[in-house]
Write a protein that binds this DNA or RNA. Structure first.
Lengths: 332, 332
DNA sequence: AAGCGTGTTGCAAGCGCTTGCATCATGGTT
DNA sequence: AACCATGATGCAAGCGCTTGCAACACGCTT
């Protein structure tokens, strides 16, 4: 058994301050329920003893864990790390603590993480990927706030904050056409959301009179290193495309480097469009045209939903479309 | 008050299985303490009711939260995201859950996060940055396992898993000299660890008969976008350096792009060395020479220490040097 | 046949906190 | 001067689980 982390309890503080434990508890949780000078005595006692409340006990008694589970596929080299950063900051400011779970490889892992989160009585579960129906059922039954944040599914488990992948694909096609490109090349990551963008792009492109675009697929997560293979494949095309639509800024960057190394000029010989509008997109030379998703906004909405729920709102389902922005820069 | 996440309790399961709560609890925590056929009945009851244990209650009673706090400065675009990924995976496999805290901006934030972690009775706190002495005292007093993982401080709070920044700086200087470079340029991030590497580099370089290296400083976190400014500064140098030692792979990559855009050949006209050996280092063309830190190893050691502590070991202080590897690739 | 070690199970006392309700000053009303 | 609304505090019953200890049922040994 580990050493008692803090043998100092509420009772100790109460005894020292000469009040009941209830009063100390109230002072700690809603200070203005106790008289000012009582508060001072308690404050002094807390400081003197170095008291650190036990939130496990508190959570058990109050049924509020102040814990939020954030489940994402992977962290490094993806747009998710930006979103997580915003999310953690926002949650932390609102008094919550984020428990991080990686759902990348075995899909079964997700079910396991959901279970672990539920067992800790998290106040919300932020989901970035879709979950199997058994887990959906568990989630629903639990009554916990579930927020899906990377999409706007037709039937969210509970709340969804996201954007339309379809609209992005469509707008990208229009953008490309308006810019006068005629031979787009689409690189899609294996994954349902990317696929949705790709399908919408192709549909819109063809509807606008374009020929079926050239394309290729890459494994997720899209990585810088895939650029080599992709570029080689592009070069092997019967006709050289004039613009490449990538699944991530990282891949776009890689392609730019490859293209330049091959003596091509970007965007004149080959235009390139990224996705995610990570810091990289504006820092690369040439700067990368990309699709911006406002991660900070998503994080804020998450906390907003939680706040409303905490006040008893039972609005459901919630669907918030945070939209996206096509950012035209030098690369396309 | 939120809807009860799971109204099903141990008692319900016990009643349905026709045993006492103690037996159910034992079955859940150490299955081989209960008879096989009792276990089966319990398992069935758990499944039927969709029981999810309440770890807040369990943690309170057993004084084990199965929670680990991981505190890092920032996530996106740093080597930390790789380490966190490994850490979360490893902890998760060992049955722990990681609570993530960002300590970037106000130093006071760190104290706050430490307090939040302690209040949740985490079983360990993983620290990536140094903490002020008041927080150190709090940490010490708490008796919680504290693992510092980015350095090997002379007086760790508790345990430390890291490597010698001094040794890295020294080895980099030797490496550069052995490769025949004569005019190194050092780009240092503002931050004590980077400073240690820089100092060791300079000391070793001068000791080996070299002239005081040219250098410049950049803010943390080092970013791709800083490459432009750095490259401009390098060009403004009285004498053109023949090798640049960067504070991160990302910055190294940026410099390579800038250098190539300026018509320089890497490494012939200008060699470049990164830090962190992120995936990028081997994916970039030219591949980037870098310093590898084994994040997965660090993660494993963390779990190892926790396992030993759980078994009652009181070894302290612990200092584990995981070393580093200079990886020579095409860029230098 | 009495005794005993072993393996299972139940009993019940907490773990440290929150909170509904009751109690009690306090000062203002009538 | 009796009354009462108000604000501050205390009482005590949990929250759902873990675990030391005791009880018990076996099958063996002597």
């Amino acid at each position: 058994m580990p050493v008692l982390p803090s043998p100092v309890t509420l009772d100790d503080v109460a005894a020292l301050a000469g009040v009941s434990t209830a009063t100390v508890s109230r002072f700690l949780n809603s200070p203005d329920m106790v008289a000012a000078k009582t508060g001072e005595r308690i404050r002094a006692a807390v400081d003197q003893l170095g008291y650190i409340p036990n939130l496990l006990a508190g959570g058990l008694a109050s049924n509020r864990s102040r814990l939020v589970a954030v489940l994402i596929p992977q962290l490094s080299g993806t747009i998710f790390s930006d979103i997580i950063e915003a999310m953690v900051a926002e949650l932390s400011a609102a008094g919550y603590v984020a428990m991080l779970g990686l759902t990348e490889l075995p899909q079964e892992q997700t079910a396991h993480l959901v279970h672990a989160a539920l067992a800790r009585r998290v106040e919300a579960i932020i989901l970035t990927n879709t979950v199997d129906s058994a887990t959906r059922a568990t989630l629903r039954r639990s009554g916990t706030t579930v927020i899906e944040i990377w999409d706007l599914p037709d039937e969210p488990v509970d709340a969804a904050i996201g954007f339309s992948h379809h609209a992005i694909g469509r707008d990208l096609a229009r953008f490309v056409r308006n810019r006068g490109y005629v031979r787009p090349y689409v690189i899609t990551a294996r994954g349902s959301r990317a696929q949705m963008r790709r399908d919408a792009f192709v549909a819109e492109w063809i509807e606008g009179g374009g020929a079926m675009p050239l394309e290729s697929q890459v494994p997720v997560p899209t990585r810088y290193g895939q650029a080599r293979g992709c570029f080689a494949e592009i070069r092997r095309s019967a006709v050289m495309p004039d613009v490449v639509i990538c699944g991530s800024d990282l891949l776009a960057q890689g392609l730019i480097v490859e293209a330049m190394a091959a003596g091509l000029s970007v965007p004149d010989d080959l235009a390139i469009i990224g996705f995610g509008n990570t810091r990289l997109a504006e820092e690369m030379r040439p700067t990368i045209s990309s699709v911006d998703i406002d991660g900070a906004r998503i994080a804020r909405e998450v906390v907003g939903i939680m706040a409303r729920r905490a006040e008893g709102s039972r609005e459901t389902p919630v669907r918030i479309d945070v939209g996206f922005r096509l950012i035209a820069r030098e690369s396309a």
